[in-house]
Amino acid sequence: MEWQDAYVPARQLVPDSREGEWQENADWLAPDHWRPETDQAVVTLKSWVLRSAGRTVLVDTGVGNGRERPSSPMFHRREGDFLARLAFAGVRPEDVDVVVNTHLHGDHVGWNTRDVDGAWIPTFPNARYLLPAADDAYFGPAHGYGGGRRVDDKLLYEDSIAPIARAGQLELWEDGLRIDEHLSLEPAPGHTPGSSVLRLASGTDRAVFVGDLLHSPVQILDPSHSSCFCLDPVEAATTRRRILERAADQRELVIPAHFGGSGMVEVQRSGTGFRVS
């Protein structure tokens, strides 16, 4: 985990959530996901290390250090200990074989690179970096860095994606990608054009890393609730329901990027929505 704190008011993060929805579920939302005394949603920045088919796979890379992020004051010029935390988990940068960026937002690609003598270079020198082609197209220069909506989008592309491409380590994919016999990537659009999920299947174990398909458990209770960061909230809601239906039916462990606590949940169908089991 790179960071955890109260982030924004609960209904600012999930605008479609009902006013009383957080209070009605306070017994399990607090304190890992919500602080009732201030009505602030709690957000974490998590990366995940997987060992699969003899390789080390890193899922999402957080904010990074020394980034110019004027639209995101909490992460602007941040300095943290992400690499030390990886080392504590027994992973050196050169040990990483595959980096998965579930989508191209600044809090998922930041540690793709690091600053060495004023130049951004790949943090993981031996890794393939897997990025959805749709996000590369949308947030890259061909589309004006996300249509010029935020200055951060150009900055993060230039410091966290372009150096990977120049190093020959960037691999764009579309329509799905089989990484190995246990791991596969699938499109899950809506949050961003190329937003994706990573599925794990090993024996009877099932898990799905959903990136920003979920920011808060209240979106499990009602998957029509998109976050304030979803570029296409309607498509995101459709995708969210599809992914949760499969997770409930196949008993997949759901692992979002920003949940507090253990960071993972099991879901079950409940009426027209779902519940955390």
Rank of each mutant, 00 (worst) to 15 (best):
D153C: 06
D27N: 13
V63M: 10
R35V: 10
L58T: 01
G80T: 14
R85I: 09
G168S: 05
D27F: 01
W48P: 11
L58M: 02
L130C: 10
V109F: 04
R92F: 11
K46N: 10
L155P: 14
R92W: 11
W28C: 04
L131V: 15
P125M: 14
P31R: 01
P122K: 02
S47T: 13
D95H: 06
L45F: 08
G62D: 05
H105D: 15
V109I: 15
F75Q: 10
D117N: 15
D32T: 03
W111G: 13
I164Q: 03
F88K: 08
A30E: 14
P141W: 02
W28S: 05
V42H: 03
V116K: 05
R67I: 14
T44C: 01
G140F: 01
H103I: 15
R78G: 11
D152P: 07
A137Y: 09
E94C: 14
Y129S: 05
S72K: 05
E68F: 07
H33S: 06
A162R: 08
V43H: 05
V59P: 03
R77V: 14
D117H: 09
A134T: 12
A53D: 14
L156H: 11
V99L: 00
F88I: 12
D32C: 05
G146C: 15
A119C: 11
M74K: 08
G54N: 02
P31W: 02
G168E: 03
P36L: 00
A165P: 14
G66A: 07
E94Y: 04
E37H: 03
L104C: 12
E94H: 13
F139A: 01
Y145C: 05
A127Q: 03
D117R: 11
R114M: 13
T44E: 09
E68H: 10
Q40M: 12
E79V: 15
K46D: 09
A142C: 12
G147N: 06
L130F: 01
L155F: 12
F75C: 14
I164P: 02
T61Y: 00
D97K: 00
F88A: 09
E171W: 00
L131G: 03
A165N: 09
G168F: 01
G62Y: 05
A134M: 04
A87Y: 08
V42A: 00
H76L: 06
E158F: 08
G90S: 04
G148S: 06
W34N: 05
A119S: 13
L155D: 09
L83E: 06
S160H: 06
L83C: 00
G80Q: 13
D159F: 03
Y157G: 06
P141C: 00
L86M: 09
W111H: 14
V49I: 09
F82E: 08
R35N: 08
L29H: 04
E171P: 00
T61V: 14
V42S: 01
D27P: 07
N126R: 06
Y129H: 07
Q169L: 11
D107Y: 06
W28H: 04
R67K: 12
D97Q: 06
N65G: 13
D39M: 03
V59A: 05
T56W: 04
H103C: 15
D27W: 06
A137S: 13
D81R: 10
